[in-house]
Amino acid sequence: MIELEQKDFEELVLVALVTLPDQFRTALKNIDVVVEDFPPMDVLKRTGVANGYGLLGLYQGVPLRDRGPHYSGTLPDKISVFKVPLESSVDTVDELMPLVQHVVLHELGHYFGLSDEEMRESRGDLH
């Protein structure tokens, strides 16, 4: 397990976002990406995850492909990246960066409307 300063971890998330291909990065509309230490208890209950270490990221919102012509005036969708579970999954920063990129990409897949199964079929196991 490693422990980074909050700003250093946020930098890894930012790098994961800015290195996305242009067509994906420019398609991001009305979405916030945040770093949280652990998933909240209500999220664990809703997702059926037994403990906070079992969830690395979470997308909450209306997927882009489900937004109709009347989609407006809503709060931003949210991608949460959970710092402590991610840090506890690796031994080095070199291992952490690809894992953070993987989690961000996976949650963005949900933003674009892909299910876990669709992501596994199209890009390998992103779950």
Rank of each mutant, 00 (worst) to 15 (best):
G54I: 05
M1V: 15
T26L: 06
Y111A: 14
V62E: 03
S80I: 01
F38H: 14
E107D: 02
V62M: 14
F38N: 07
V34E: 15
E117P: 10
E118P: 04
H127W: 06
L86G: 00
V90G: 00
H110W: 02
G124Y: 02
E118H: 06
T92A: 01
R123P: 12
D22Y: 14
L96R: 02
L96D: 00
E87Y: 03
V81L: 06
D91Y: 10
L99W: 00
V15G: 13
V13D: 06
L58K: 04
P40M: 06
D77I: 11
L4I: 08
L56H: 10
F24P: 04
K45L: 12
V93T: 11
N51H: 15
G57D: 01
E5T: 11
V62P: 10
P39S: 11
F24R: 13
Y111L: 10
G61Y: 03
M41E: 14
F24Q: 12
L17K: 08
V13E: 01
E5M: 14
D37R: 04
V15E: 13
H127A: 15
V33Q: 11
D42L: 03
F9M: 06
V81A: 08
P69I: 13
M1D: 13
V35G: 05
Q23T: 13
V103N: 03
D91K: 12
L17W: 05
N30W: 05
K7P: 05
E117M: 13
Q101W: 02
V104R: 00
S115R: 07
E117T: 15
P76Q: 13
G48F: 05
T19I: 05
P85H: 02
H102T: 12
Y59N: 04
S80W: 04
Y111W: 08
L44W: 00
E117A: 15
S88K: 14
V90F: 01
E118S: 13
D22F: 08
M41K: 15
L55H: 01
H70V: 14
R120S: 13
F112V: 07
D22M: 15
N51Q: 10
I79N: 01
L17E: 09
K78Y: 07
F82S: 02
S80F: 07
V62L: 09
V93P: 09
V35T: 09
M119L: 08
E118V: 04
G124H: 09
N30I: 13
P63G: 11
P39L: 05
L75C: 05
